[in-house]
């Protein structure tokens, strides 16, 4: 296990290094931030001063090494727009995105698994067909449009739920969270549902395919022949087996939920790091974009690691780190 972790972390470090070069050179090409930042009336002297202050007058490779050196000490530069360290800005927004993504995942599992198992046990029943049709629809619906429809239905027409913002938050260890207050949860519900939409379809498909396969296995017949109740057979024997692919895929998809929150956060004006990314791209705020990307890359690596560990816990046949069972 330890060997496995060390090897994985070393591999990840290489990926981060490559990504930071790519990200940096890529972002360098984004427009000319000076045009946005300095008012058109500013004179040449002011312009030059601003360029020097931001370090934009130095050659590309120098800028990169300065960037890499600072990055190693956790400094990814100062936001051109907000004037505070970019990493701080991203990390400050991170909890909002995280809680939204986690709630979306929970919704996806709570809705997707029961529906998927149902459809898998009775694939030819009307209910099974409707569930599958629904999942095709879920794959086809554009997220942002559904988000707008949700706002129209539940916020504008019915007035049940708020359309934007985080609502009331509670600080835990100095970090504000919405999910701990009733008002915050109300604000979270629509965006989380929106973010969950695609994953619900995915979980339904995985759970259905898994159930169909597992239900035919001899161990399920044997479980029936042992006189177990259907609830135990489905809830333990089938569920535990289909959870292996579901958890693996969902874990890997968690990164994409974080990325897709860019869309949902824009629709619902949720002040997370996705909204920050879009705003920063539109304002050409380079350091923030770079900081967002590097934080995301690190996040993905952590997620992949956690998934591998989880996978080995769920499936007794897998043992990490070469220690053969």
């Amino acid at each position: 296990m330890l060997v496995f972790l060390i090897r994985r972390i070393a591999q990840s470090a290489i990926v981060v290094a490559i990504m930071s070069v790519l990200v940096f050179t890529g972002i360098f090409a984004i427009g000319n931030p000076i045009d946005v930042l300095i008012s058109p009336e500013a004179d040449e002297l002011e312009r030059a001063a601003a360029i020097a202050r931001l370090g934009l007058d130095r050659p590309l490779h120098e800028q990169f090494f300065a960037f890499a050196g600072n990055a190693l000490s956790g400094d990814l530069g100062i936001s051109f727009v907000h004037g505070v360290p970019a990493v701080e800005l991203v990390l400050e927004r991170f909890p909002a995105t995280l809680e939204l993504a986690l709630l979306a995942m929970i919704i996806a599992v709570l809705i997707g698994i029961p529906l998927g198992i149902w459809a898998g046990l009775r694939p030819d029943s009307p209910a099974g067909r409707i569930i599958m049709a629904g999942s095709i629809l879920g794959f086809s619906l554009p997220t942002f449009w559904v988000g707008m429809l949700l706002i129209m239905a539940f916020a504008v027409s019915l007035g049940w739920l708020p359309a934007s913002g985080r609502g009331e938050t509670v600080d835990v260890f100095g970090i504000p969270f919405s999910f701990l207050t009733a008002d915050g949860l109300k604000h979270m519900l629509l965006p989380a549902l929106n973010l969950a939409l695609f994953k619900v379809s995915l979980v339904i498909r995985l759970a259905r395919a898994g159930t169909r396969e597992v239900a035919l296995q001899d161990y399920v017949r044997f479980a029936r022949a042992k006189g177990l109740s259907p609830a135990r057979i489905v809830g333990v024997h089938i569920l535990k087996n289909i959870m292996i692919p579901v958890v693996t895929v969902l874990g890997l998809e968690f990164g994409s939920v974080i990325a897709f929150s860019v869309v949902t956060e824009s629709v619902f004006a949720w002040p997370g790091m996705g909204k920050l990314l879009i705003d920063s791209i539109l304002l050409l705020d380079r350091p923030v974009v770079v900081a967002y990307l590097l934080v995301t890359v690190l996040l993905f690596i952590v997620i992949n690691l956690v998934v591998d560990v989880l996978y080995s816990l769920l499936d007794p046949r897998i043992r990490l780190g070469g220690a053969k069972a």
């Binding site: 990164g255 990325a259 974009v289």
Partner: peptide, 20 residues
């Protein structure tokens, strides 16, 4: 593998931020 491990939307977003 590396490319596929990142969500398509993120890559496209950054590329378009660069390209305009």
């Amino acid at each position: 593998d590396i490319q596929l491990s990142f969500p398509a939307i993120l890559i496209a977003l950054i590329l378009l931020a660069v390209l305009g």
